[in-house]
Design a protein around this nucleic acid. Structure first.
Length: 460
RNA sequence: GGCUCUAUCGUCUAAUGGUUAGGACACGGCCUUCUCAAGGCUGGAAUCGGGGUUCGACUCCCCGUAGAGUCACCA
């Protein structure tokens, strides 16, 4: 489709923690580059020295790395002043830009209600403005089709505070040209910047790249996702124990959809099937519930090794001192959690697996099944179960399933509730817990027998 | 307010002139069941309004309406 190799970029300004809104633009640009065997460039737009912070830059880089979006080249605009000066000089020399004398102090600002009012601001007495040719500009957006603007109303906009301090529109265009960008894939909030930038491309004699403005991510209040409007930093999802694959999958499906109904897709699968033509035009609300569902899918599919690797962060003590017990809980944990941080809740006070490491003898009334609260029945079944369990060998072959095989026929013959409720209670002492077979498996035969004996005591 | 973009279930979306308007998340019911989940089955739920074009419009055009973005010496 193109003779030139594809080059895309992600150009964030390091003025806040990296969140889903900017991440999705990065993801789509990345996917498009990889799909076309092209280049993906990360460019830090830190020309605003007041607001740019190194910690935010680090946060962006760390998050991209964690998500596995590797970039082929890296630039920082604060290190490219000389390049911009060259273009600035060229623009001034050719009459496309000029040094403008300003009246410092007052600026017209458009308020939320559309009213224009004067505000006291700190302004330079001299800036560089672009000489607007005041004409109609049109471009064919890869997602939206033809978009036309009349640039007259834009006026002579500022492109630099001084020869050493260029600002957004200028640096953005110069860099995209210098770096050979073929496709500008960015958020829809940039669509109204595009005509100004096209004017600059033309003025510096650069070819205008293709544009693809992807729809915005919205908060639950339908406002552009931002720090102020519900944007959660990617790093905090990482801290909560979300998997990169789940986040990538979820984000890709916000605004894009494959041809079939499959939704759980790996990044390579997404890259293979992706097309800008199938990108939605309207904004999408970020739905935490569905992200959680995706994460659950990815956790339940994860290998034991991966699972332990992630779990380690949240329950380090379990993996150093009780790793055998922890491994026995693995299948249950995989089935129950939606994020790794939930392991802490499961094992903590009131959690379903709390009994594993904290146990007090269970009072008699709790041992009785509410549908048949007969002490003698419960005691008899517990004694029978105890005998069966004591015959089981605690070796490598032991599994919840094999324990079930030993006890199940007896439970079926004598009433599952009558047998299983007291058994499970004696082991866990909790209203909510895994089934008794898993309890025995996790606790081990010796500990299980100890707890059952104690329960039989309570019932005598 | 000017300019620009957008409009299918509550949410994410499929259907690019002919479908009983499909799927997923969430929600309800049922099954399974010793508790909690998971799982299986299942239900409710949408084409913003009005005009055209057409044998036929979710789909194309126009007008409304609504929402969003933007209007900095931020990016």
């Amino acid at each position: 489709m193109n003779d030139k190799p594809v080059v895309t970029r992600f150009a964030p300004s390091p003025t806040g923690l990296f969140h889903a809104g900017s991440y999705r633009a990065a993801l789509f640009a990345y996917i498009f580059a990889r799909q076309n065997k092209g280049k993906f460039i990360l460019r830090i737009e830190d020309t605003d020295k007041e607001r740019s912070r190194k910690e935010y830059e680090d946060n962006i880089i760390d998050s991209l790395k964690w998500l596995g979006l590797e970039y082929d080249e890296f630039y920082r605009q604060s290190e490219r002043t000389e390049i911009y000066r060259k273009y600035l000089k060229q623009l001034v020399d050719t009459g496309h830009a000029y040094l403008s004398k300003e009246t410092p102090g007052i600026a017209a600002v458009v308020g939320k209600d559309g009213e224009i009012r004067d505000e006291q601001v700190s302004r330079r007495s001299e800036v560089i403005r672009f000489k607007n040719p005041n004409k109609k500009v049109a471009f064919d957006d890869l997602i939206r089709g033809r978009v036309e603007f009349d640039t007259t109303e834009l006026g002579d906009f500022v492109i630099a505070k001084s020869m050493e301090e260029p600002i957004f529109h200028l640096v953005n265009v110069v860099d995209d040209y210098e770096m050979g960008m073929t496709h500008i894939i960015r958020g829809e909030d940039h669509i109204s910047n595009t005509p100004r930038q096209i004017l600059i491309y033309e003025a510096i004699g650069a070819p205008v790249p293709m544009f693809a403005h992807i729809p915005l991510l919205l908060s639950s209040e339908r406002a552009k996702l931002s720090k102020r409007h519900g944007a959660v930093p990617i790093s905090s999802y990482r801290e909560k124990g979300y998997l990169p694959g789940a986040i990538i999958n979820f984000m890709a499906l916000l605004g894009w959809h494959p041809v079939d109904d499959r939704e759980v897709l790996s990044l390579p699968e997404i890259i293979e099937q992706f097309s800008l033509e199938r990108v939605q035009k309207s904004g999408a609300i970020f739905n935490d519930e569905k992200l959680k569902w995706f994460n659950k899918q990815y956790i339940s599919k994860s290998s034991d090794t991966d699972f332990v690797e992630h779990a380690k962060v949240f329950v380090p003590e379990w993996l150093s001192t009780s790793s055998t017990t922890f491994k026995k809980m693995l299948p249950l944990l995989k089935e129950k959690i939606s994020a790794f941080s939930e392991i802490t809740d499961l094992l903590g006070q009131g959690g379903e697996l709390h009994f594993v490491h904290d146990y007090e003898s269970v009072p008699a009334d709790k041992l009785l099944w509410k549908k048949n609260p007969d002490r003698e029945v419960a005691r008899k079944h517990l004694q029978e179960c105890r005998d069966m369990i004591s015959k089981i060998e605690d070796n490598d072959q032991l599994s919840a399933e094999s324990i079930k095989t030993s006890i199940w026929p007896y439970a079926e013959a004598n009433g599952k509730g009558d047998v299983l409720w007291p058994l499970r209670m004696s082991l866990s002492g909790q209203d909510r817990s895994p089934d008794p077979f898993n309890c025995i498996y996790i606790l081990g035969i010796t500990e299980s027998l100890k707890r059952i004996d104690s329960a039989i005591q309570s019932l005598s």
